[in-house]
Amino acid sequence: MKKKDLIEFYSIHKLKIFPLIVSLSSLFLSIFVIYPQVVKLISNQEAIGSLNKKSQLLETKVIALQSYDIEELSRKLGIILESLPPDKDYGNILGLLQRLTVNSGFSANLISFTKGTGDGAGVSNYGVQMSVKGFRDNFQTLLDSLENSSRLVRINKIEVSSRTNSPTLESSLGIEALYEGMPKNVGEVDSSLPEFSQKDEELIKELAELEQAILATSSSSAVQSPRGKSNPFE
Rank of each mutant, 00 (worst) to 15 (best):
L215A: 12
S192Q: 11
L215R: 08
E211I: 00
V186G: 08
F196V: 00
S218L: 09
T217A: 13
T217H: 11
I214G: 01
L193I: 09
S218P: 05
P194C: 03
K205L: 05
D200Y: 11
E201Q: 05
P194S: 05
V189T: 13
L215T: 09
A208M: 00
K199D: 15
T217L: 10
S197F: 04
T217P: 05
A216S: 08
A208V: 09
L207D: 14
A208F: 03
E188W: 00
E188F: 02
D200A: 01
K199L: 07
E209I: 00
E188L: 06
E201A: 02
S191E: 14
E201T: 02
S192E: 15
L203V: 06
I204T: 08
E202Q: 07
L215Q: 12
P194W: 04
S197Q: 06
Q212E: 13
S218A: 13
S218Y: 06
V186F: 01
K199F: 03
E206R: 01
P194K: 02
L207A: 06
E195Q: 08
D190R: 07
E188Q: 07
E195D: 15
E209Q: 07
Q198W: 14
E201N: 10
A216M: 13
L207M: 09
S218V: 02
E188R: 09
T217V: 12
E209C: 00
E209L: 01
K205P: 04
L207T: 07
Q198F: 13
L203R: 12
V186L: 04
L193P: 01
E206I: 00
S197M: 03
L210S: 15
A216Y: 13
E201D: 11
E211L: 03
K205E: 12
K205T: 01
V186I: 09
E206Q: 10
E188G: 04
L203Q: 14
E188T: 12
S197H: 08
S192D: 14
K205H: 09
S191R: 10
A216V: 05
T217I: 06
E206T: 08
Q198T: 12
S192P: 07
D190F: 14
L203T: 15
S192V: 07
T217Q: 15
E202I: 00
E211V: 04
K199A: 10
L203K: 11
L207W: 10
D200W: 10
S192L: 04
Q212S: 08
D190G: 08
S191Y: 03
L203D: 15
I214W: 06
Q212G: 02
Q198K: 05
